[in-house]
Each structure stands twice: as C-alpha cells, then as structure tokens.
C-alpha cells in the first residue's frame, strides 16, 4: 500500500508523483484541502523528522510502514528503495551533481516559487489566520509561514524571488545549451524531474513568467520532459497548487 498525501499538485508533490510513475510504482492520492492541513498533518506527528519539516507539511509519501517527506529526499528514497529503472547516474560524480543541484533547488528556487505562488495564486486571505494561529501540530516557523500568507506579499519579496528564479533558469539553460538532452547529459534523471516541477508552472501559465528570461534550450528541454508518459499521467492527478513553502535563507 502506497499513498501520496498532497495539498493539491504543488511543485514538490508533482516531482514525487512523476518519480513514482517513472518507477512504475502504483500509488493512491489522498487530497487534503489546505484548510485541513493542521489536523491532517497532526496524524504524522509520531515521526519527529516529518513534524519538524522545513519544506512544508505536504506532500508526505507513505510507503508501507515508512513515511517520508521533503520532496528531493523522497525522490532519492524512491531510487534507493526501488533501483530500477535507475534515475540517478551510476558514478559518484554524477550523484554529486544531482545533490549539489538539489540543494540549490530546495534552498533558493523553492522558497522563491512559494513566494510568487502565494502572491499570485493562493488567495487564502484572512481565513488563514483563524485556521493556523493556534495550529500546535506545526512548528512556529511553519505557523509563521502560513500566517504571512494572510498578508499581501511585499514588493521586495517578489523582486528577490524573481531574482532567485532568474538564477535558476540561467543555471538550467547553461547546462543544456551544449545540446545534451537532459540536465546531467545523455540520461534522464531525478534532476530533470525536480527541475521540471519548478519550471513547469511558468510555462503552463500557472505563474506569471513576466520579466523572467527562459532560454530556448530550457524550453526545448521542458517539452521533452513534458512529453514523457509518466509526466503526463502525474499532471492529470490534481490541479496545480501553490502554498506557503520553505522560508528564504535567513543569511540572505
């Protein structure tokens, strides 16, 4: 029995759903309305790691007796637990490339997408305050992230988020301009899956891409990933969603 618990198809949820499909692993989806997050999340509090999440309450994958969160680590968990088809390079350097890139995705790009998504799409409004103010199942940082979503997003935060996404698009485009089909070279990998979940919202119109330069090589790569049956199937599972995500690094 394998269940992916999601608050709509957020970028982290999309990455996990794609990886499960690529592996051919059957799973069911449990949809949790964002308003039900505190109560639904409390049911996972016996895992101290899940309870202290830095990325966000959901998605959580329950795989038999194991519950895992934090989307990039869920992708690596899946490749560790179900090695075929392999979604990571077999050599140590390739694996290092994946992880160094994942750190950038998680620490820079994901907070930026969450900021823009909350500003442009989420629309929780004043209701957020009443629902999350006393949500003791959440850490104080996560409560603050939700409460901040009840307020208008500052111009500074939007500008900073656009800057970070500009870095992401430039970095991805630079990896592809040599003509290689996938980010790490000739083989499709977890990097493509994780990056696709971050780039797709700006190309399917879910988020406003205005002012962001998306290079030709990056667009062509996006089409290649989009054409994969595993990706198509994942996109039909739930509507795109954007919720308060990981905080921006406090050092700048």
């Amino acid at each position: 029995m394998r269940t992916l618990h999601i608050n709509g198809m957020t970028p982290p949820a999309l990455a996990i759903a794609i990886a499960l499909n690529e592996k051919g692993l059957a799973f069911s989806i449990t949809q949790i309305d964002w308003r039900e997050t505190p109560a639904a999340f409390a049911r996972f509090s016996d895992s101290p790691e899940i309870a202290a999440t830095l990325e966000g309450e959901f998605p959580i994958l329950v795989d038999g007796m194991t519950a895992v969160s934090d989307s990039y680590f869920v992708l690596e968990y899946l490749d560790d637990a179900y090695p075929t088809p392999r979604l990571r390079p077999s050599d140590a350097y390739g694996q290092w490339q994946l992880q160094a890139l994942a750190r950038f995705f998680g620490e820079r790009a994901l907070p930026a997408i969450s900021t823009l998504g909350v500003a442009q799409v989420f629309g929780g409004g004043a209701a957020v305050k009443a629902l999350f103010e006393n949500a003791t199942a959440l850490t104080s940082e996560r409560r603050d992230a939700w409460l901040a979503a009840a307020e208008p997003t500052s111009e500074n935060a939007i500008e900073e988020s656009r800057r970070k996404l500009g870095l992401l698009f430039d970095r991805l485009d630079a990896m592809l301009v040599g003509g290689q089909p996938w980010l790490l070279g000739q083989d499709y990998s977890l990097s493509d899956i994780a990056a696709f979940a971050l780039v797709h919202p700006f190309l399917d119109g879910s988020l406003d891409a205005e002012g962001l330069a998306i290079g030709e090589a990056l667009r062509l790569w996006h089409e290649r990933v989009l054409a994969r049956p595993a990706v198509q199937a994942a996109l039909t599972l739930a509507k795109p969603a954007f919720l308060p995500g990981p905080e921006h690094a406090r050092w700048g």
Binding site: T66, V68, F73, E76, Y77, D80
Partner: peptide, 11 residues
Amino acid sequence: DAAKRWKMRWW
C-alpha cells in the same frame, strides 16, 4: 536501508 538513508539526509 532506504528509509534510514532518508533519515540521514533529513538530519
């Protein structure tokens, strides 16, 4: 073990 490796990375 995959779950323990996940825990290692989480920490």
